[in-house]
């Protein structure tokens, strides 16, 4: 669709490709660092409130914690999810394929809030339980898409690779994974998007991240806090999502 612009006569420079995510990122960092400068604006919005800038933590710290939790959970989910999907598509693990495939698609109907809430009694309050809950939930789209990518390959491709004298490991690394990469990347994108949103809900179970100003604002009836948290989470989600979109386009362009 839009990939022609990437590989057309005039090859875009690297910076140009990443322009949109970089603009979002700049907005995000500027807003997080300079929220105090916007105090007059919030004061105008809410003239009767004494405190209009979320006071309990610096926004950059909250952003960092949010990113850390999402990155840790997503990284583990990618490693474990892709490994699990590879394992159950090899001859040794094929017995487990139907159950894993069915569970991965069924599990995605579980609402993330319910998963997060159910993880708390088992794992307790705080940051670690949230990482584990995000990891477990984030696994599902990755496993599902990796399975779809690996299983969706034309058997003839397999045959041809074997005919060329490739071993099973070589086929996996040089044929199967590169061909399945776009589908896997789409799964990772879904997983990370959900993780960013669900991590914000983690503020209700004792995590201190960008969800905290929102929850605190709702509890105390302070709309300014809510707006600050919501704007930052929204920008974070847009930054990450647009970066993934670029990655997908680059991958498509390379394949074409």
């Amino acid at each position: 669709m839009k990939s022609e612009s990437l590989q057309g006569r005039h090859r875009a420079t690297r910076l140009e490709i990443w322009r949109v995510p970089l603009i979002w990122l700049a907005c995000l960092v500027l807003l997080a660092a300079g929220m105090a400068w916007l105090e007059p604006l919030f004061r105008w919005l809410q003239p009767d409130t004494r405190q209009v800038i979320y006071p309990h933590a610096d926004f950059l710290v909250l952003l960092g914690r949010h990113l850390l939790v999402v990155a840790a959970a997503s990284l583990l989910a990618v490693l474990l999810g892709v490994a699990a999907a590879i394992l159950v598509t090899r001859p040794a693990g094929r017995d487990f394929l139907p159950l894993v495939a069915q569970f991965a698609s069924m599990g995605q109907t579980f609402p993330p809030v319910a998963v997060l809430a159910l993880a708390v009694p088992v794992l307790g309050f705080g940051t670690w339980p949230i990482i584990v809950a995000l990891l477990l939930y984030g696994l599902l789209p990755i496993v599902r898409n990796t399975l779809a990518g690996l299983e969706g390959l034309d058997p003839a491709v397999h045959e041809a690779a074997r005919g060329m004298g490739m071993g099973p490991g070589q086929i996996l690394r040089q044929v199967e994974l590169p061909l399945a990469a776009p589908v896997i990347l789409a799964g990772i994108r879904t997983s990370v998007t959900i993780s960013i949103a669900t991590a914000a809900l983690g503020a209700t179970v004792g995590a201190s991240n960008l969800g905290a100003p929102i929850i605190s604002g709702i509890v105390n009836g302070n709309t300014a806090y809510v707006l600050q948290g919501a704007a930052l989470i929204g920008l974070l989600a847009l930054t990450v999502d647009s970066a993934f979109e670029r990655c997908q386009r680059l991958l498509d362009a390379r394949r074409a």
Partner: peptide, 17 residues
């Protein structure tokens, strides 16, 4: 697509004001 990307908690918050 843009709307779908915004996390639910943030969207609820942004609609509040």
């Amino acid at each position: 697509n843009f709307l779908q990307t915004i996390p639910s908690l943030a969207l609820f918050g942004l609609l509040l004001a």
